[in-house]
Nucleic acid binder design. Structure first.
Lengths: 117, 117
DNA sequence: CACTTGTTCTAGTAGCACTAGAACAACTAG
DNA sequence: CTAGTTGTTCTAGTGCTACTAGAACAAGTG
C-alpha cells in the first residue's frame, strides 16, 4: 500500500495516515493478517517523525482495526465484513448528488456527520 | 435557529458554528434574506468571544453562503437550489448502510472525503 | 443624530502537532 | 541463546492555531 501525506492540508498527519488505512481496509486493499510497514520505515519514507506514524497506528488500534505487537509490527485485525459494495455505492451516489446540486464538500460532510451522530 | 457548540469536541468552535449554518441552509431551515444573530449577541449567548463568531461568519462569506454588512449583520445569501430532498435521502441511505455494516463514522467520512476529492 | 454591527489591529494564553533522542520490553529469526 | 526488529514509554523543545480580550473605526439603520 502506498501512503501519501500533505503537510499543508490542515489535517494532522497522523489522521491522514489513519484515514488511508481505514479506506484501504474498507476497500479490501488491506486484508486481515496483512502487515503495515514498520513505523520507523514508514516514518523514514514519508520524511516524518516515528512518533507521528505510531500515533496513527495507535488510533487504528483504538478502533480495533489493527493489532500492534513489538517485534511483529502493525497487523490488520478486522477486515470489512458484509458487502462493502453497497456502502461504496452509497458513497458514490451521495457524491454524485452533491456534484449535481453544486453542494460544497464541507456542507455534504457536515450533513453526513449530523446524520451519523 | 438554535446554535450549539461543544468546546471539548476537538473541532474548532468557529467550524462548528459554520457547519450548523451550512446544514441549516441545506435543510431549508434558513432561507435567503434571513438574518443571523449579531456576532456580539451570539457570542454572548454562547459564552464565546466575538472574534470566534465573526470567524465563522467570515468562513461562510468565503463560501458565498452569507453576506456581511455593517449595521445590518449577517444575511443568508444563497438558499439551496434544486431538490435537496434527493441529497438528504442519499445522506440517510449512506448512514443507514454504514450502520448496517457496523462501519465506523470515521471510516465512512474518510470514504466520502476521498470520493469528493 | 444615536445606535447597531461588521472590520481591523494589537496582544496575550493554552493546547496541540510535530520533532528529537533515548532507554526499554516483547517478539522474531537464525 | 543471540542478534535484530519493532512497538512502548519518557522527557523535552519548537511552532502554529484556537481562543480570549480590549479598543478604535467604518458603514449602514432608524
Amino acid at each position: 500500500m502506498i501512503f501519501r501525506i500533505d503537510p499543508t492540508a490542515g489535517v494532522p498527519l497522523y489522521e491522514q495516515l489513519a484515514a488511508q488505512v481505514r479506506v484501504g481496509i474498507s476497500r479490501g486493499e488491506l486484508t486481515t493478517g496483512e502487515r503495515l510497514p514498520a513505523a520507523r520505515d514508514l516514518a523514514d519514507s514519508l520524511d516524518v517523525n516515528v512518533h507521528t506514524v505510531l500515533k496513527a497506528y495507535q488510533l487504528l488500534r483504538d478502533d480495533g482495526l489493527v493489532e500492534l505487537r513489538r517485534g511483529r509490527g502493525a497487523v490488520v485485525a478486522a477486515t470489512a465484513t458484509g458487502d462493502t459494495a453497497a456502502l461504496h455505492a452509497a458513497v458514490r451516489a451521495l457524491a454524485d448528488e452533491a456534484a449535481r446540486l453544486g453542494t460544497s464538500p464541507q456542507t455534504v460532510i457536515s450533513l453526513l456527520e449530523e446524520q451519523l451522530r
